[in-house]
């Protein structure tokens, strides 16, 4: 990717992300009443994150086995409402240990 393309991409990202935050903050004067829009806006973060995570997470590490271990650890800790940092670090550690086991022990 050349620099010109990078800056076009960057501008699209930065401007759209800025406007989507700033316009409602500056101009919103009344609450959203429409139930469908309200529900839609409420659910969309989770749908985005779920679709981004699966199945891509299984291909994020060198080996789907280690990724699966990481996912299971993340699931269990998240079910017990651990903080984002704890979950992220524990999942990384799980992947790391599994990769070591796969590479040097098995």
């Amino acid at each position: 990717m050349d620099n010109i393309q990078f800056f076009i991409y960057l501008a699209i990202m930065a401007i759209s992300t800025y406007l989507i935050r700033a316009i409602p903050f500056a101009l919103a004067s009344r609450k959203i009443e429409n139930t469908f829009i309200k529900s839609f806006l409420c659910y969309i973060p989770y749908a985005v994150l779920a679709a981004m995570t699966f199945p891509a997470v299984f291909y994020a590490t060198k080996n789907p086995v280690s990724a699966t271990v990481g996912v299971i650890i993340a699931f269990i800790l998240a079910l017990f409402k651990r903080g984002l940092m704890t979950v992220a670090v524990a999942a990384c550690a799980g992947v790391f240990i599994t990769e070591i086991v796969l590479r040097y022990i098995l």
Binding site: T61, V71, A74, A78, K81, V87, V89, V95
Partner: peptide, 24 residues
């Protein structure tokens, strides 16, 4: 390499940590 590989899962793990408690 092996450390970088492990870190690749961090963002995804964080996404899981956001969704699961709300899904529960």
């Amino acid at each position: 390499d092996i450390v970088l590989n492990s870190l690749n899962i961090a963002l995804y793990a964080m996404f899981i940590a956001i969704v699961i408690p709300e899904a529960k």
